[in-house]
Design a protein around this nucleic acid. Structure first.
Length: 272
DNA sequence: AATGTACGCAACCGCCGGCCA
DNA sequence: ATGGCCGGCGGTTGCGTACAT
């Protein structure tokens, strides 16, 4: 079965899309939807092949696409998911709301692959005696150290929810005070040992900036839910935990990944 | 300032599998 | 059962821009 290339037809435009073309495509899809991609360009009056239209829509024009740089948490998610899923970009994208497989693929090839190899080299016994790590070590590596890059912004809406296949959520209370959460990142990168119930209190007791009474985590519930994707997991992030402001979402994501990845449960969460 | 090089990203290409006549 | 259409996917390309020399 031989198929003609989709854009072989003369007269069909290739290359970058113009704002006018974008407008035509968006207007048409908003009005009529995209029932048949092959028929769409003709009906919409575009000199493009259906495939090109579909790509432009799914990778760029779709309204639910999240633009802008990938957050640290998203990058970590990609790295974790790639370890488990390999180059199944669409499967990875399905777990990162608002991100396209193409975008994730690009980020992987341009940033993360490099980043990961540097990291791995730096952790090998041969490399440990060398100064191969380009990224400077954070000055304060305490578990909840404050970072200058974090702003003490206004309090975000009290509900901060994130999900992976809708299996987990985080709730923060109102009137949080914000302290940066760089420590959790540092912890994660330092390959924490398997976490148990005493993990977070141990973390906290090592940090003078926090007191044990300000942080708690329903760890049993988190692990249990991670093992069973059908069960909603709620991890309580207490008032004084230090999440608020413009970074609340990121901080909650940080929290989420530390809970699950350090527990070694993410693969179960993803049903792999 | 000019040139060369590296990088990032949007878009293309070809293959594959599902669906349907 | 077969062949064609279609959408989805992953790999790759090529252009524009930033950075280095």
């Amino acid at each position: 079965m031989v198929r003609a290339p989709c854009c072989e037809k003369m007269g069909l435009k290739k290359g970058p899309w113009t704002p006018e073309e974008d407008h035509v495509l968006v207007s048409y899809i908003q009005q009529y939807g995209h029932g048949n991609w092959r028929a769409l360009p003709k009906l919409a009056g575009l000199l493009r092949c259906g495939k090109s239209c579909r790509l432009r829509w799914t990778n760029y024009l779709r309204p639910d696409i999240k633009r802008g740089n990938f957050s640290r948490e998203e990058e970590e998610a990609i790295i974790n998911l790639h370890q488990m899923l390999g180059n199944r970009w669409s499967a990875i994208a399905a777990r990162l709301p608002g991100r396209t497989d193409n975008e994730i693929k690009n980020v992987w090839h341009t940033h993360l692959k490099k980043k990961l190899s540097i990291k791995q080299n730096s952790t090998t016994p041969e490399a440990q005696g060398q100064e191969s790590e380009p990224e400077p070590e954070p000055e304060n590596t305490s578990c909840f150290a404050k970072s200058e890059s974090f702003e003490y912004g206004p309090v975000s809406p009290p509900q901060c929810t994130t999900s992976a296949d809708d299996t987990s959520s985080f709730t923060t209370s109102e009137n949080n005070t914000c302290s940066a959460n760089m420590g959790m990142k540092v912890d994660y990168e330092m390959n924490l040992p398997q976490a148990d119930e005493s993990f977070w209190s141990e973390v906290l007791s090592a940090d003078q900036n926090c007191s044990n009474e300000t942080v708690s985590c329903d760890f049993d519930q988190a692990i249990g839910a991670a093992a069973d994707p059908q069960v909603n997991a709620t991890v309580e992030v207490p008032v004084d935990f230090g999440f608020s402001g413009s970074n609340m979402y990121d901080n909650c994501m940080d929290f989420w990944y530390n809970v699950f990845t350090t527990a070694g449960e993410i693969s179960e969460l993803l049903e792999i």
